[in-house]
Simulated scan of single mutants.
Amino acid sequence: MTKNKTALSAAITLILVSGCQTFETLDTGLSSLIGKPYKQAFDVLGFPDAENRIDGKRVFSWGNRQTGSYTVPTFSSSQVYTGTGYTTVYTQGSQTSYYDYNCQIDMIVNSKGITENFKYKGNSGGCETYARRLSKAGL
Protein backbone atom coordinates (compact mmCIF):
# COMPACT_ATOMS: atom_id res chain seq x y z
CA MET A 1 0.00 0.00 0.00
CA THR A 2 2.85 2.40 0.83
CA LYS A 3 4.49 1.66 -2.54
CA ASN A 4 1.25 2.61 -4.33
CA LYS A 5 1.00 5.90 -2.41
CA THR A 6 4.63 6.72 -3.14
CA ALA A 7 4.21 5.94 -6.85
CA LEU A 8 1.03 8.05 -6.99
CA SER A 9 2.74 10.98 -5.25
CA ALA A 10 5.67 10.77 -7.67
CA ALA A 11 3.33 10.70 -10.68
CA ILE A 12 1.37 13.72 -9.46
CA THR A 13 4.58 15.66 -8.79
CA LEU A 14 5.87 14.82 -12.27
CA ILE A 15 2.63 16.02 -13.87
CA LEU A 16 2.68 19.30 -11.93
CA VAL A 17 6.32 19.99 -12.75
CA SER A 18 5.89 19.16 -16.44
CA GLY A 19 2.82 21.44 -16.57
CA CYS A 20 4.87 24.36 -15.26
CA GLN A 21 7.57 23.64 -17.83
CA THR A 22 5.00 23.55 -20.65
CA PHE A 23 3.68 27.03 -19.87
CA GLU A 24 7.16 28.43 -19.23
CA THR A 25 8.23 27.17 -22.66
CA LEU A 26 5.11 28.70 -24.27
CA ASP A 27 5.70 32.07 -22.58
CA THR A 28 9.34 32.21 -23.63
CA GLY A 29 8.87 30.80 -27.12
CA LEU A 30 5.84 32.85 -28.11
CA SER A 31 7.37 36.04 -26.69
CA SER A 32 10.46 35.52 -28.85
CA LEU A 33 8.25 35.67 -31.97
CA ILE A 34 6.85 39.12 -31.15
CA GLY A 35 8.24 41.78 -33.51
CA LYS A 36 9.05 39.21 -36.19
CA PRO A 37 7.26 38.37 -39.46
CA TYR A 38 4.21 36.20 -38.76
CA LYS A 39 5.39 33.44 -41.09
CA GLN A 40 8.10 32.56 -38.58
CA ALA A 41 5.33 31.40 -36.25
CA PHE A 42 3.95 29.25 -39.07
CA ASP A 43 7.38 27.63 -39.46
CA VAL A 44 7.40 26.69 -35.77
CA LEU A 45 3.75 26.05 -34.85
CA GLY A 46 2.52 24.79 -38.21
CA PHE A 47 -0.24 26.20 -40.34
CA PRO A 48 -2.94 27.85 -38.19
CA ASP A 49 -6.46 26.45 -37.87
CA ALA A 50 -8.18 29.80 -38.41
CA GLU A 51 -7.65 33.40 -39.48
CA ASN A 52 -9.86 36.35 -38.52
CA ARG A 53 -9.74 40.12 -38.88
CA ILE A 54 -10.35 42.30 -35.87
CA ASP A 55 -9.95 46.10 -35.94
CA GLY A 56 -7.80 45.95 -39.06
CA LYS A 57 -5.46 43.34 -37.64
CA ARG A 58 -5.15 39.68 -38.51
CA VAL A 59 -5.60 37.08 -35.81
CA PHE A 60 -4.27 33.59 -36.47
CA SER A 61 -5.42 30.76 -34.21
CA TRP A 62 -4.08 27.31 -33.47
CA GLY A 63 -6.14 24.80 -31.55
CA ASN A 64 -5.68 21.34 -30.12
CA ARG A 65 -8.14 19.17 -28.20
CA GLN A 66 -8.17 15.54 -27.12
CA THR A 67 -10.77 14.00 -24.86
CA GLY A 68 -11.21 10.48 -23.65
CA SER A 69 -11.36 8.15 -20.73
CA TYR A 70 -9.37 5.38 -19.14
CA THR A 71 -10.24 2.71 -16.62
CA VAL A 72 -7.93 1.63 -13.83
CA PRO A 73 -8.30 -1.23 -11.37
CA THR A 74 -9.09 -0.46 -7.75
CA PHE A 75 -8.39 -2.59 -4.71
CA SER A 76 -9.60 -2.30 -1.15
CA SER A 77 -9.61 -4.34 1.99
CA SER A 78 -11.76 -4.28 5.10
CA GLN A 79 -12.14 -6.14 8.34
CA VAL A 80 -15.40 -8.06 8.81
CA TYR A 81 -16.61 -9.61 12.03
CA THR A 82 -17.87 -13.13 11.31
CA GLY A 83 -19.28 -13.99 14.73
CA THR A 84 -16.20 -15.93 15.75
CA GLY A 85 -13.59 -13.29 14.92
CA TYR A 86 -12.43 -10.84 12.36
CA THR A 87 -11.41 -11.70 8.83
CA THR A 88 -10.04 -9.55 6.03
CA VAL A 89 -12.12 -9.17 2.89
CA TYR A 90 -10.43 -8.01 -0.31
CA THR A 91 -12.44 -6.29 -3.04
CA GLN A 92 -11.38 -5.55 -6.60
CA GLY A 93 -13.19 -3.15 -8.92
CA SER A 94 -12.49 -0.43 -11.42
CA GLN A 95 -12.74 3.33 -11.74
CA THR A 96 -13.12 5.32 -14.94
CA SER A 97 -11.47 8.72 -15.21
CA TYR A 98 -11.98 11.28 -17.96
CA TYR A 99 -9.56 13.78 -19.47
CA ASP A 100 -9.86 16.87 -21.65
CA TYR A 101 -6.53 18.10 -23.03
CA ASN A 102 -6.95 21.42 -24.83
CA CYS A 103 -5.03 24.47 -25.96
CA GLN A 104 -5.71 27.52 -28.08
CA ILE A 105 -3.09 30.03 -29.22
CA ASP A 106 -4.03 33.35 -30.83
CA MET A 107 -1.45 35.53 -32.61
CA ILE A 108 -2.18 39.17 -33.46
CA VAL A 109 -0.45 40.53 -36.58
CA ASN A 110 -0.35 44.17 -37.70
CA SER A 111 -0.94 45.46 -41.24
CA LYS A 112 2.79 45.11 -42.04
CA GLY A 113 2.78 41.39 -41.25
CA ILE A 114 4.64 41.73 -37.96
CA THR A 115 3.57 39.75 -34.90
CA GLU A 116 2.35 42.09 -32.17
CA ASN A 117 1.14 39.74 -29.46
CA PHE A 118 0.14 36.22 -28.48
CA LYS A 119 -2.30 34.80 -26.00
CA TYR A 120 -3.03 31.22 -25.11
CA LYS A 121 -5.36 29.25 -22.88
CA GLY A 122 -5.62 25.59 -22.06
CA ASN A 123 -3.94 22.95 -19.94
CA SER A 124 -0.55 21.27 -20.03
CA GLY A 125 -1.89 18.16 -21.78
CA GLY A 126 -3.20 20.23 -24.68
CA CYS A 127 -0.42 22.83 -24.88
CA GLU A 128 2.44 20.33 -24.65
CA THR A 129 2.40 19.79 -28.43
CA TYR A 130 3.05 23.49 -29.10
CA ALA A 131 5.64 23.73 -26.30
CA ARG A 132 7.60 20.85 -27.86
CA ARG A 133 7.55 22.57 -31.27
CA LEU A 134 8.84 25.82 -29.74
CA SER A 135 11.51 23.97 -27.78
CA LYS A 136 12.61 22.00 -30.85
CA ALA A 137 12.97 25.29 -32.76
CA GLY A 138 15.19 26.61 -29.96
CA LEU A 139 12.73 29.30 -28.89
Rank of each mutant, 00 (worst) to 15 (best):
residue 1 M to H: 14
residue 4 N to L: 14
residue 8 L to T: 07
residue 9 S to W: 13
residue 11 A to Q: 10
residue 11 A to L: 12
residue 12 I to K: 04
residue 12 I to G: 06
residue 14 L to N: 13
residue 15 I to W: 07
residue 15 I to C: 09
residue 16 L to R: 11
residue 18 S to L: 11
residue 22 T to R: 03
residue 24 E to A: 14
residue 30 L to C: 02
residue 33 L to H: 03
residue 34 I to K: 15
residue 36 K to H: 12
residue 36 K to A: 00
residue 37 P to C: 03
residue 45 L to T: 00
residue 45 L to C: 06
residue 49 D to M: 04
residue 49 D to F: 00
residue 50 A to Q: 11
residue 51 E to Q: 13
residue 52 N to M: 11
residue 53 R to G: 08
residue 54 I to D: 11
residue 55 D to V: 14
residue 56 G to H: 08
residue 57 K to E: 00
residue 57 K to P: 04
residue 58 R to A: 08
residue 58 R to M: 09
residue 59 V to C: 08
residue 61 S to L: 15
residue 63 G to N: 12
residue 67 T to N: 09
residue 68 G to C: 07
residue 68 G to T: 03
residue 70 Y to V: 04
residue 70 Y to H: 10
residue 70 Y to A: 09
residue 71 T to H: 02
residue 72 V to T: 14
residue 73 P to K: 07
residue 73 P to W: 06
residue 73 P to C: 07
residue 74 T to P: 03
residue 77 S to H: 00
residue 77 S to K: 01
residue 78 S to K: 05
residue 80 V to N: 02
residue 80 V to R: 01
residue 81 Y to H: 10
residue 81 Y to C: 04
residue 84 T to Q: 08
residue 85 G to Y: 01
residue 86 Y to D: 09
residue 86 Y to V: 12
residue 89 V to Y: 01
residue 89 V to D: 00
residue 91 T to Y: 06
residue 97 S to F: 06
residue 98 Y to C: 02
residue 101 Y to S: 03
residue 106 D to A: 10
residue 108 I to E: 05
residue 109 V to I: 12
residue 112 K to L: 09
residue 112 K to A: 13
residue 113 G to M: 10
residue 114 I to T: 10
residue 115 T to I: 14
residue 115 T to Y: 11
residue 115 T to M: 10
residue 120 Y to I: 01
residue 121 K to S: 12
residue 125 G to H: 01
residue 126 G to F: 05
residue 127 C to V: 02
residue 127 C to N: 07
residue 127 C to L: 03
residue 128 E to H: 11
residue 128 E to F: 00
residue 129 T to S: 10
residue 129 T to K: 13
residue 130 Y to T: 03
residue 130 Y to C: 03
residue 132 R to S: 12
residue 135 S to I: 01
